[in-house]
Design a protein around this nucleic acid. Structure first.
Length: 215
DNA sequence: ATGACGATTTACT
DNA sequence: GTAAATCGTCATA
């Protein structure tokens, strides 16, 4: 074998150049890959996302067209990573989509761990965690994959450290939409069904609201 | 310069 | 179920 190395296939710019609602659903089932400094691969399949719909979205960092040093990556090319710091201790990762200059993005909320679970456990700092709990939240998955400030604004289409590999997309019938988490102050945007998850998946962050009320 | 507030997680009652 | 942890960011002044 002259070249045992298989060229890495990844999702390209065009894949990300769409609305956050469309991308949020299309990302379900795709593989997020993190390559550490010494070459180790960590990865997981995306099972939960949220769309942030731009300047009119009261839950978005870009509400009313806000453009600050923090959210500047939201205005960059589709396929850019927007990693922000919150609650004084956590990082969360978005994938910028749409067109350059239009601040729309998709928040990654949960992964089904696929490669490097022992390393993820070490990064999480909790030895006893089950695989299904390693990446079941937006800050958990960043910690498990060593995603922080240093990776903010990188280009997922070209950067060797972080990218998406095509995998088996979730079937439409298996995608559930529901209201987003942790945006209680967003008024009429609180209830919009911009959170997407794989129906019944064990690695979800917070169970979706039950459909139908008990009598 | 100041103060209010997180696109969360974890521990505890 | 409630609350603490913990600090960068942003609006206001």
């Amino acid at each position: 074998m002259l070249t045992p190395e298989v060229p890495t296939r990844r999702l390209d710019r065009d894949f990300f150049a769409r609305s956050p609602e469309s991308l949020g659903k299309a990302l379900l089932g795709q593989r997020l890959v993190r390559v550490l400094e010494f070459g180790q691969r960590l990865s997981g399949l995306i099972v939960e996302t949220e769309a942030y719909a731009g300047p009119r979205d009261k839950a978005s960092h870009a509400y009313q067209g806000r453009r600050t040093p923090r959210n500047e990556p939201m205005y960059a090319a589709p396929g850019t990573a927007y990693v922000y710091f919150t609650y004084g201790m956590h990082f969360c990762m978005n994938i910028v989509c749409g067109k350059v200059g239009v601040p729309v993005a998709v928040l990654l909320r949960a992964l089904e761990p696929a490669e490097g679970m022992d390393t993820m456990r070490r990064l999480r700092g909790r030895e006893g965690l089950r695989d299904r709990d390693l990446c079941s939240g937006p800050a958990k998955l960043c910690k498990a994959l060593a995603i922080d400030r240093a990776l903010n604004a990188l280009d997922l289409v070209t950067d060797p450290r972080l990218f998406l590999e095509p995998a088996e997309p979730a079937r439409r019938a298996d995608i559930v939409s529901c209201p987003r988490i942790g945006i209680d102050r967003a008024e009429e945007w609180v209830d919009k069904p911009l959170r997407y998850l794989v129906r019944g998946h064990p690695c979800i962050s917070v169970p979706p609201r039950i459909i139908g009320a008990p009598e």
